[in-house]
Design a protein around this nucleic acid. Structure first.
Lengths: 252, 252
DNA sequence: CTTGACTGTGCATGATATTGCACGATAGGC
DNA sequence: GCCTATCGTGCAATATCATGCACAGTCAAG
């Protein structure tokens, strides 16, 4: 048996069962555990799986995923969301991204505010339950649970029928030269499309997102009409955004 | 068993029951309480749970609870949902309506169940957050807050691209002669379309829905393959359903 | 055909992780 | 305040791991 073939079988087993146990594999192939361990080590180096004591798990660790799901908004996020909420006029049509900051924004809208909200996040839709005068338009698609937003072709198609006043975008990074970025390719596509579907785009970003860049680019920073951020951000950096045509709003 | 896997199961139990008891877990895994305690300690260090005397509690209030608590389910509904859950096979594609009963059904699916769920209800989508092996496809549309489901032309269009194994339908009334009915015209349209998009339709209905009729008709009762209901319903009425080709399942 | 470099494998060895038990400390019920 | 269940820590036994090395098979150059 080719080692490449064996490694493929290990990956297949991992995909099927969600885990691989070194001992079981060694028995199955009739080889020593050492050999399997070597395979696992090599596959781990290639990032194809995650090594644990006794065997291996899929590369994207679900435990980390659970750990990363912090729904707690910081004070800064609350302040930013509150400031951003003042930019909304009654009866407008606005697009809301998923994410904790937009979630906070919803909390700062009066319960009888008149508005139409377009969103691809079921979490946002649920958060708007009690706002009796807000019409919610949901964009469908495949739910990307990491960010709790719908993505994929169906989402893109749905966006193409939308024309909104404001798009409130959440980003992983906003950089004067490198532009807007996020951690997932599909999400980047969706955000780009939403940006195009709205007359203006407002980015809400806490200090750690400013002049940071992530893996996938959404578009140039000049696409943004207003950036809402914290007061603690360096003046000169904000100036560089303003020179790109972005009006900066400081939440205190 | 991998220790990582065991920890995952502990977290699953915690999510499902809202608490974990060290003694119970040790018996379940056939390990000493010391080992469980060690696991709990480590998980607590990662902030994934909160350690208490005798076991552990969730670290932060669950999103599922926040969304689900508002709608309280009766004992009958719980029993019906539990029975209905047994009709689902792994790796199937199922359509879930909105409503309290389907919400209950979600709670009875194991957290590692493999499934594709199509839904037009953001509430259901949010409830499926922790089911790591369930792919969620959301159908967009205009959110009808009364039932928390997406309706309208966009929803209809999205449905036309779907082909599922089972559709779990919630109804306001199921009547031997008057058929299936619901309180909103748009919803009736959607339900009709979803019914056509699935190989079989399962209706979950508590006693008060049986032989009741509402304003808008979804379709004939013969469209239903299985009716899941309570034991308290009159035998002769259930017989009348069976003569229409509906197989009746009694949740006790 | 022979030789030597290379690869895949299994085994030995010391290192590390996991587990169960013992024992004293602590918490919670009454 | 007492009693019991639970807890944390240290320790020993076992399982699993990484590393180095030996051996067999492959392949290509000489």
């Amino acid at each position: 048996m080719l080692t490449t073939h064996r490694k493929q079988l290990i990956l297949d087993t991992l995909k099927r069962d969600g885990q691989v146990i070194a001992k079981t594999m060694s028995q199955q192939f009739g080889l020593s555990e050492d050999t399997i361990r070597r395979d696992l080590r090599e596959l781990a180096e290639q990032g194809l799986l995650q090594r644990v004591h006794g065997g291996a798990l899929p590369a994207s660790p679900s435990v980390v995923d659970l750990a990363g799901r912090k729904l707690l908004a910081t004070d800064a996020k609350t302040a930013i969301a509150k400031a951003a909420a003042t930019l909304i006029q009654p009866k407008q049509i606005i697009i809301l991204d998923g994410g904790t900051t937009t979630q906070e924004l919803v909390k700062h809208l009066p319960l009888d505010f008149e508005l139409t909200v377009v969103t691809h996040s079921p979490t946002i839709a649920v958060a708007l339950i009690d706002h009796r005068n807000i019409d919610v338009i949901m964009l469908g698609g495949k739910l990307f649970k990491h960010s709790m937003v719908n993505i994929g072709a169906a989402a893109m198609e749905a966006i193409s029928h939308i024309r909104a006043d404001i798009y409130f975008m959440g980003v992983t990074g906003i950089h004067a030269e490198l532009g807007l970025s996020t951690g997932d390719l599909e999400e980047a596509h969706i955000k780009r499309a939403l940006c195009a579907a709205a007359a203006e785009t407002i980015v809400m970003a806490s200090a750690d997102k400013i002049n940071a860049a992530s893996r996938y680019v959404i578009g140039p920073t000049s696409d943004v009409s207003t950036l809402v951020t914290e007061a603690s951000v360096d003046e000169s950096i904000l100036k560089s955004f303003e020179s790109l045509g972005v009006s900066v709003m400081n939440a205190k």
